[in-house]
Amino acid sequence: MNPLERYAPLVDDTEAFFAACERPLPSVVRVNTIKTDPERVRRALDDEGIEYEPVDWHDGLLRLSDGSPGTNWPYFHGWLHGQEEVSAVPALALDPQPGEKVWDSCAAPGSKTTQLSAMMDDRGTVVGNDNNLGRLSSLRHNAERLGVTNLVVTKQDGRNFSLKDFGFDEFDRAIVDAPCSCEGTIRKNPTTLEEWTLEHVHSVAAVQKGILSRAVQATKPGGTVVYSTCTFAPEENEAVVDHVLDTEDCEVVAFDCPLDSVSGVTEWEGDSYDSSVTDTHRIYPHLNDTGGFFCAKLEVGG
């Protein structure tokens, strides 16, 4: 059975949902404002005869008509980075400011991390953490290519991340873009669901709870924590948020999602979640022709 069938009761238009999951994903790039600006990128792409369409909700995102995003001059100059449209949402929800200290707990390969740096005008500190050396090497490569200078790369287990080596003891903001069952990436990786099991969903949810708890603890009172996944499973989304609402000092806050989305669910397979999870966002592939996504915004010490 297709694991996605279990979400049919949550989706308004199941036919459109399953049809979208079958389609390949458009190739999208983000303009790296550390090195350039959208207008100059558009001029350079025009000069090179590369076709693109602007994304209507964000002037720094472009849909490329065909080909690999890596084979053009703007990409070579580190002006562009391949990043799925929907994955630009969590950094916007976090809204980091220049000069702040920001933690990205699961940073590699770095699309969101480098977006945070750009939003901060490459000032202050982004601590980009990951626990896998191979993935850290792609994070380092991407950050170098994009000219990022405010990134500190660490290799720790996010669940018990230590700040003892740093000159500060709490972050202004944190983002947990958690490892997950990746159901929402089906359009990019059609084999994603072949190894899907409910046991894996439950075991990865336990890791997610650990990392999100640590992010809330490591963020200053009044600070912001954003939690995101690329999966539809409520066990990995609303249930994880519900868990930290119980165990840590934080609350869900509403945010404007720039893409069409629906509210988080308060009930799933016999479990019920805190009513405030209706302020989290579920993005299904058919709503905006993107991948699937979940995003929640929390305020610490709420």
Binding site: D122, R123, G124, T125, L136, R140, A143, E144, G147, V148, T149, N150, L151, V152, V153, T154, K155, D165, F166, G167
Partner: peptide
Amino acid sequence: WIFADDAPSPIRVEGLGMT
């Protein structure tokens, strides 16, 4: 390496800014 901020020295991390 060049770093946009400051940090205690020495510091053991995988990367600090950009080469």
